[in-house]
Structures are given as structure tokens and as C-alpha cells.
Simulated scan of single mutants.
Amino acid sequence: MTPDCDWMVILTYTPRADSDARGYEEWLRQVDNVFFNGILSIAHYANWAVGRAIAGAPGFTHFDFMRFVSEADIDRAWSNADLLAFAAGWVARWGAEPAAPDPSANYHAHVARRRSGTPGDDAAPLFLALNPPAPAEGDELWEVIRPIVGVPPFRRFAIRRGAAPEPGYAPIVFEGRLIAAP
């Protein structure tokens, strides 16, 4: 079960084109997910891939949910020297533009606060809706508070577990495919 946290960093990205052939998903399961879930201030970290589209296109192929108990925990994690070095190593190995001086060429990271809903099980089908006008009852609604890396392309997002939302639910809606979770 995903812990009941009110803070999250949502990471969105598209890894280098040859990443699948080089074993990216196995690396996420064996290295990345283990590393981030080992950072004390991170309550829960899960890696996802964009699955089938229901409406629109998100502009990225992967996303990670990094959940925190408090906003102060986010600041502790993102000032952690080991985390920053790990992120730089990820860019060098998997980033689409590893030589880019701006890290947002490789990933975006945004702080979000939960406004409604409760988390569910990572194993349940998950749908992500970007900029929904209003979430359905039971969906987790998150508001982007501030960027860490990059400019947020959406102001809020909803997470639904279970049945897929209708295409009119939000401009961009897609199913997530779980790659790794604790």
C-alpha cells in the first residue's frame, strides 16, 4: 500500500532512445528504485511508464512519484549530496541530452501537494490525468506548488486507481504501467 503522504515530487522524463535496449527497466528495479527508497526523508518512491493514451499526449514517456510526509522532507532530500550525485549519474547514463547544461533537457521535477483523495495500492491499475477541471470522488488530486527542475507543464494532476476515466475527464489522460515500487 502506498503511504498516506500529502507531499510529492513528480518527476517526468523521456530517457535516451536506446535505453530499453540497454536494460533501463531492470536498472530501475535493481538500482534506481532501491536507491531512492533508501533515502530516509523519502516515504515512498515508484517508477512508472506511460501506457495507453486515453486523451492527448503527455510529452514524456516515464514518470516517478516520490512521496514525502512534509515539505521539509522534500528540501532535505533535494539537498542531499548523494541524491544530487545519483541524479547527475542518471543524466549521464540515461538522459536524452546528457551534455545539456540545463537538467530540464533530461527531466522535470515539481513539488506537489495533495488536495483530496487517498492513495491506493501500486499494483492496482493507475491512470494519470493532467489539468483535470475537477477530480472524481476518490481520485487523488495534486496541485503543483513549485518547480525543482524545469517549468511545470501542468498545474494539477489527478491519480485514479481502478476503472479508466472517460476521455473528457481531462485534456491529457493515460494509463501508467508500474515498473518498480518497494
Score class of each variant (00 low, 15 high):
7 W>E: 11
8 M>N: 08
9 V>C: 04
9 V>Q: 11
9 V>D: 06
11 L>T: 08
12 T>V: 12
13 Y>A: 06
14 T>V: 04
14 T>G: 01
16 R>N: 12
17 A>R: 13
17 A>S: 14
18 D>N: 14
18 D>V: 08
18 D>P: 10
18 D>G: 10
19 S>F: 02
19 S>V: 05
20 D>W: 09
22 R>F: 00
22 R>Q: 12
24 Y>V: 00
25 E>P: 04
25 E>V: 07
26 E>Y: 03
29 R>N: 10
32 D>R: 04
33 N>I: 01
33 N>S: 10
33 N>G: 10
35 F>H: 07
35 F>A: 09
35 F>L: 09
36 F>L: 09
38 G>W: 10
38 G>K: 15
38 G>Y: 07
39 I>C: 12
40 L>C: 03
41 S>M: 11
43 A>R: 15
43 A>F: 04
46 A>P: 11
48 W>G: 03
52 R>A: 15
54 I>E: 11
57 A>N: 06
57 A>L: 04
57 A>Q: 15
58 P>D: 03
59 G>Y: 01
59 G>W: 00
60 F>D: 08
61 T>A: 07
65 F>S: 07
66 M>Y: 02
67 R>A: 05
67 R>Y: 05
67 R>I: 00
68 F>Y: 08
68 F>E: 03
68 F>K: 04
69 V>Y: 02
70 S>P: 05
71 E>T: 05
72 A>D: 14
73 D>T: 09
74 I>T: 09
74 I>K: 11
75 D>Q: 10
77 A>L: 02
77 A>P: 12
78 W>V: 01
78 W>T: 07
80 N>F: 00
81 A>Y: 01
82 D>H: 07
83 L>I: 02
83 L>R: 14
84 L>W: 00
84 L>P: 06
84 L>N: 07
84 L>R: 13
84 L>C: 04
85 A>H: 09
85 A>I: 03
86 F>A: 05
86 F>V: 06
86 F>S: 03
87 A>K: 13
89 G>R: 13
91 V>W: 00
91 V>Q: 06
91 V>R: 12
92 A>G: 14
92 A>K: 14
95 G>P: 08
96 A>Q: 08
97 E>M: 13
97 E>S: 13
99 A>S: 13
99 A>Q: 14
103 P>F: 00
103 P>I: 01
103 P>E: 06
104 S>R: 10
105 A>H: 11
105 A>D: 11
106 N>F: 00
107 Y>T: 08
108 H>K: 11
108 H>M: 10
109 A>T: 02
110 H>S: 07
111 V>T: 08
112 A>N: 07
112 A>R: 06
113 R>F: 02
113 R>S: 12
113 R>H: 15
114 R>E: 09
115 R>K: 13
117 G>L: 05
118 T>A: 15
119 P>I: 05
